[in-house]
Design a protein around this nucleic acid. Structure first.
Lengths: 362, 362
DNA sequence: ATGAAAGCGCTAACAG
DNA sequence: CTGTTAGCGCTTTCAT
């Protein structure tokens, strides 16, 4: 020690193998200016003499320079990214919400990270931690959640953790957590859509309508069942509890559920499937039972997935503003007032009336 | 200068507003160790005394510490991300390839960035530059490209630029650029699938088969047309040039194209649509013409998109190993030999025989 | 208008 | 096994 700061042998700079990324210093050297000046022309947001700027830009072009996003992010508060967390990328729901998210993120100069959880709570936690590490501006969780109290508490904790890390949690397609929780919620009217669809079937004369795909612990199907019931009640009708059938949002449940139902309750004239995917199974079961849709039994869905109009017959369903959901999620997360906590937006849904539901037979 | 390094007033550390992200130093202070030690327990890959490790871990938990991914990436050579670039997230092709990419990326400890180009060449360039900035490990370009020479040259340049930046370009679903180009290509057998499908139709007795959706300047439809032709030739048949119909991969082209065709050439007995999306339009046109499928005219597709089996009738099509394509893309990009340049893998396709193609009428 | 210098939060030699 | 010390590539005062 004590030797006054031996200027330390600088290793030959850039130890990497092949060609190497030029840095801001290389550009500076080539342009005959200081690194600070290069940084200023990069940022654009600072006065730099026309001539200097030109020199720097030429040097950048000649060196094929690109900034290092990590180094830049290290200084700033965020990494200019938006994270998109979903159970499964192949869900028919996903693509169009992703489209909205990506559109808006790009419009706001953000990159888009995608992660999946496959509905594993552990993985969900892990992914959210990853996003904290990345310091994403917004973390958008897509799809319905559980009704469960413990789950809700966990979400609240995650929202706070993200908030502390400077990120914003956005819940997309599920109900709010509460006003004191720093999260943005972009929901759509599950109950209203189900109400409208059920009213439509009721207006067509149907009275024995089955709801296929209830799930008590999940927010989405629960809200849809609520709308289903309310539509009955508003007409002074009481839905038959036996016709509200529990099951997952899968084609195979739709198939098995409808097959059994049609056997057990041949008096049913309409089947309101909780989702379009369920409806595909239901339609298959109807065909296999030798019944015609909509002549013998009406079938409807929910979601209006791509190609719903190409089913046999074209599916009458509830249309969700998928991509607007995604766009709103990003927009709200990025432009909230600095000190707002809870934010809540609910978008509307509308009926897509096609061929799979018709008037009551006879 | 000459003043011997005035030790400079340290600002009160952490100027941010609300709560603040604890850093490695905070953890170190709390655990009573040095930052380096904290880093070592973080990395896991270095001997640390059991007791020390425990102390550090407790401190991390108490502070709810997460590493700063940007700071970490600044040191390392890459950012542990894989970029996924696609024309449009809502394309039916996208979801399952994305699924494969995401799966494999996660398995390899990488995060997944998604960007869209909407087929705008400018945007494609911009996006690739963004990925250079991000220092993504792999940049996966999904979907067919143009046959165009200029376009190809541009790709070569991009491949080199990415290579210099330490990233790997992967072309997914398009032909190779050449052996000397540092890129990985994961393709599938477009021609073989079209050959198999055409042979299937020929074997069913069809002789007037239309190909709906040729496009000369794009690699994908061109390869499919090639398979279509070859299947004819191998049976000593010459495909009627008038029946190879130019058009985009859209439903509306499928509809208009088939409508006109059925009017102009009522002798056609089978329509091979270049994609399933085109097939949806074709099916609609067939229905609207008062014809039945497959009784009057057979219709087939290509891609085997989700729900192809739910069309009316269930669509006979060519199945592409979408998610394996995505998985292979990531796997190869990450595990290539350090000095390999061109890499090329071609996956197989297979027929999904369903109901929309039947034997020749009469 | 430009340059010098101090870090952002972390990792990685190099010494103990 | 643990602490010290340099930076990674960039932005940002503070001087000039």
């Amino acid at each position: 020690m004590s030797r006054p700061a031996a200027p330390a042998r600088r290793r030959p700079r850039r130890p990497r193998d092949g060609r190497v990324r030029p840095g801001i210093k290389d550009v500076a050297a080539r342009a005959g200016v200081s690194p600070a000046t290069v940084s200023r022309v990069l940022g654009g947001t600072y006065p730099v003499a026309q001539a200097t700027r030109a020199k720097v830009q030429r040097a950048m072009r000649e060196l094929d320079y690109v900034v290092n996003a990590q180094a830049r992010a290290l200084k700033g508060a965020t990494s200019k990214t938006v994270a998109f967390i979903v159970s499964d990328v192949t869900g028919p729901f996903f693509a169009h919400v992703a489209d909205g998210v990506e559109q808006q993120a790009t419009a706001e100069g953000r990159l888009c990270l995608v992660c999946t959880t496959h509905d594993e709570p552990e993985r969900e936690l892990a992914v959210i931690d990853l996003m904290r590490e990345q310091r994403a501006d917004a973390v958008i969780l897509v799809g319905g959640g559980q009704e469960d109290h413990a789950y809700r508490e966990r979400m609240v904790r995650l929202a706070r953790a993200l908030d502390d890390a400077g990120s914003r949690l956005v819940l997309c397609g599920r109900p709010p957590l509460g006003d004191d929780v720093p999260a943005t919620v972009v929901d759509y009217d599950n109950e209203g859509g189900a109400f409208a669809m059920t009213s439509h079937l009721l207006a067509l004369g149907h009275r024995r309508i089955a709801f296929m795909g209830a799930q008590e612990n999940l927010t989405t199907p629960t809200a849809r069942v609520r709308g289903f019931r309310r539509a009955h009640h508003e007409r002074g009708l009481e839905p038959d509890p036996e016709l509200v059938i529990e099951g997952e949002f899968t084609r195979s449940f739709g198939y098995a559920g409808a097959r059994d139902l049609l056997r057990r309750r041949p008096d049913v004239t309409a089947i309101f499937s909780a989702t379009d995917v369920v409806a595909t199974g239901v339609l298959q079961a109807v065909r296999d039972a030798g019944l015609r849709c909509p002549d013998d039994v009406s079938v409807t869905g929910y979601d209006d997935i791509p190609f719903a109009a190409d089913f046999a017959p074209a599916l009458t369903t509830v249309s969700i503003p998928h991509s607007e959901l995604g766009r709103a999620a990003v927009r709200l997360a990025l432009h909230r007032d600095s000190y707002s906590t809870g934010q809540y937006v609910k978008l509307g849904t509308h009926l897509a009336v096609r061929d799979s539901a018709g008037p009551l037979p006879h």
